[in-house]
Design a protein around this nucleic acid. Structure first.
Lengths: 324, 324
DNA sequence: CTGTTAGCGCATTCAC
DNA sequence: GTGAATGCGCTAACAG
C-alpha cells in the first residue's frame, strides 16, 4: 500500500533528526587506477549490504584538494570516511584534517602511524617479489620504486631486506623512481635504469602499470623476458596475464582491502570499537607467470583458472632477434 | 575567522531548506569495467568543478537492484541522476522508475528512446570497425556480439550494414554472443565461433575485453593475428596496446561521455533546459593497431605517442608453429 | 543593513 | 495503543 501510494520519504529530513545519513565518504587519489576502483567496489559491496551509500571523491593525488573533499564530506554529515591519502608520508596535514573532527574513519592503502588502517603488507610484498627473483637465479636485481607514499617505502624496504638476507647488495643506480600511475612513467624509468645500471638481470617494479611500461622498454632494448631480464610487478592487474609477456605479480587482494575497510568502518560507526586490531595488513600472494620464470620447474603454475593449454612459450617481438 | 573557529556548517540542514543537496547520483552496472570508471571520472570532473559530489551505486547488471538504488537516491534528494541502465532494451521498468519521479536525469551508454542520452554512436562504431576490416582485405568477417543492451544491438546493426554496403553477407553461425564483462566470455565465444564458422578470417568483437579473450582463443587455435585472423575491439582499452598482439579498437571517448552527461545534467538541474539536443552521440574513432593491419601501407599508424621504434612484428606464442 | 522568526520533513516525545 | 507537539540546524522572509 505504501508502495502504491508511492510515498517517498525525505531522507535528508530524516537524517537531520537522526543524525545519521547512511552515507560513507570514500576519497581516492585516482579513479582510473584499477587498484582504487577495485577497492571502491569492495567498499560498496559491504556498505550497500548494510544499507549505506557511497559518496565518492577523486583527489588527483592533490593533498589540498583532498582536504577540501574531506571538509565537504564532513559537512555533508557522512557517517564515516575511507581514505587513501595523497598527503606525503610524515606530513601532519592528514591528522589535522581528519583525526580531530570526531567522525569515524579508516585509512586504506597508504599507511599513517596510529590511525586505523587496512592495506597490504608492503614490506612483505617487496620481500616476496625480490625473493622470488632470487630464487629464480637472478642476482643483480634492480627496483623501480614508486613515489613517496607508504606503499612505495615499504616495498623498497622489503626489497632491500630480501637482498640483504641473501647476501646481495643493490648496485649503484639500480633504484629508480617512477610514478605509480602511468605505464609511460615505468617506460621512462626502465630506460633510465638500463643506462644507469646496465648489468641488471631482473627488475622488481613497485606496481603493475610500472612493470608494463618497463616491459616495453626492455623489449625495445632488445632483451628477452624472462631470459635476459626477469620482471615482477605488484597488484595482480587484471590484464597482467594477457600482456606481451604474462606478468609475474604480487597480489595484495584489493577487493578484500575494500571489504575489510568498510567492515571496520561500520564497526567503528556502530560503536563496537572493541575490535582490537585497528591495523589490518593483508597477506600478499605471489602470482608467478612467465615474466620471471626462467627455471623450468616453475612452468607449471601458469594460468590455472582457464582451460587453455599450459604450454606457452615467451611472447616476443620479432624486432628482438638482432641484438642477441 | 570562520576557519579558525572551525565552524562546520551542517549541509543536510541546509539542504532541507534549500531543497538542494549538491549531490549527483551515478548508477553503473559494474565499477570494475574501465569503461564505467572512466565515465564516472569524467562525471566527477565536471561535477566537482561545479561544487557537486557524486553518490555512486553499483548495480551488478541487476535491474531490480538498479530500481532500488534509484529509489534510494531519489529519497536522498540527489539533485540529478546519471544512469547506465541494466534494464533490457524495450523494457518499461526504467521509464516507470525514473521518468515520472520529477528529478532531472541523463542516461549514458545504454540508450532508451525519448530519454536524455549521452553515449557513443554504436551503429557508427560497428560500421567503422567492420569497414576497416573490409578495407584490410578481410572478407569473411564474424562478430562477437554483446548482450541485449542498446550498445550491442547498435554495433551489430552497424556491422550488418557495413557488410551489406560492400556486398558481403554474414555466414551462418558467424555471430556469437558474449557477455561484455569478461575476457573469459570472449574466449569461450571465440572458441565456439571457430567451430561454427571455421572459414572466418576476421572478427569484430563488441568490446575490448571480449576481443582480449578472443585473441587468446585465436592464438590457442594456432592462428596468427593479423595474418590468419584480423581482430577489432571497441573501447580503446588502456592496455590494448600492451597485449600479445596490440589491439585495433574503436574509441568511443569515454571520459567525454561522462563530462557531457554531467554538463547536460547540470543544465537540466539549473533549468536551462533550452539546450535542444538532448540526444548526444559522440563520434567514434578508429585506433588501428597490429591486430587488424595485414596490409603494409597501414603499418605506420602504430603507437604514435611513445618513442618506441615502429618496427614490431606480431607477437606470437611459440606453441603456434605446429599447426600451420 | 542587522536581528529575529518561521518552517523545511521528519523522528521523537509527550499527552491522551 | 493513537495523536499532537517539539526540535534537528539551517535559510529565507520579515521586521526593526
Amino acid at each position: 500500500m505504501v508502495r502504491e501510494m508511492n510515498y517517498r520519504p525525505n531522507l535528508v529530513a530524516r537524517s537531520l533528526v537522526t543524525r545519521k545519513t547512511n552515507v560513507l565518504g570514500v576519497v581516492v587519489p585516482d579513479l582510473s587506477r584499477s587498484f582504487f576502483t577495485e577497492v571502491t567496489k569492495g567498499i560498496d559491496h559491504v556498505a550497500s549490504a548494510s544499507g549505506y551509500n557511497i559518496l565518492l571523491c577523486n583527489t588527483g593525488e592533490d593533498p589540498d584538494r583532498e582536504d577540501d573533499q574531506v571538509r565537504t564530506l564532513v559537512s555533508k554529515q557522512v557517517d564515516g570516511l575511507i581514505l587513501a591519502s595523497a598527503h606525503p608520508q610524515g606530513s601532519t596535514g592528514l591528522r589535522d584534517e581528519i583525526a580531530n573532527c570526531g567522525i569515524p574513519f579508516v585509512l586504506v592503502d597508504r599507511f599513517f602511524p596510529d590511525l586505523p588502517f587496512v592495506g597490504g603488507d608492503d614490506v612483505q610484498i617487496g620481500r616476496l617479489a625480490t625473493e622470488h627473483l632470487i630464487q629464480q637465479g637472478y642476482r643483480n636485481i634492480a627496483h623501480l620504486r614508486g613515489p613517496n607514499v607508504s606503499t612505495a617505502i615499504g616495498r623498497l624496504e622489503g626489497y632491500l631486506k630480501a637482498l640483504n638476507d641473501h647476501g646481495l647488495r643493490p648496485r649503484k643506480g639500480c633504484i629508480v623512481e617512477a610514478s605509480y600511475h602511468g605505464e609511460a612513467s615505468g617506460f621512462k624509468a626502465m630506460r633510465k635504469l638500463l643506462r644507469l645500471s646496465p648489468g641488471a638481470d631482473a627488475v622488481f617494479a613497485a606496481s603493475d602499470p610500472i612493470a608494463i611500461g618497463a616491459l616495453e622498454a626492455i623489449i625495445e632494448a632488445g632483451l628477452r623476458v624472462p631470459e635476459d631480464m626477469g620482471l615482477v610487478g605488484v597488484g595482480n592487474h587484471r590484464y597482467g596475464e594477457y600482456l606481451r609477456v604474462p606478468l609475474t605479480t604480487v597480489d595484495q587482494n584489493r577487493l578484500e582491502i575494500g571489504k575489510q575497510a568498510a567492515s571496520l568502518l561500520l564497526e567503528l560507526i556502530e560503536g563496537k570499537s572493541d575490535r582490537s586490531p585497528r591495523l589490518t595488513l593483508l597477506k600478499p600472494k605471489l602470482i608467478p607467470r612467465e615474466s620471471s620464470l626462467r627455471l623450468q620447474n616453475a612452468r607449471k603454475s601458469q594460468r590455472p583458472q582457464t582451460s587453455k593449454p599450459p604450454t606457452r612459450g615467451a611472447c616476443r617481438s620479432s624486432a628482438l632477434g638482432r641484438s642477441l
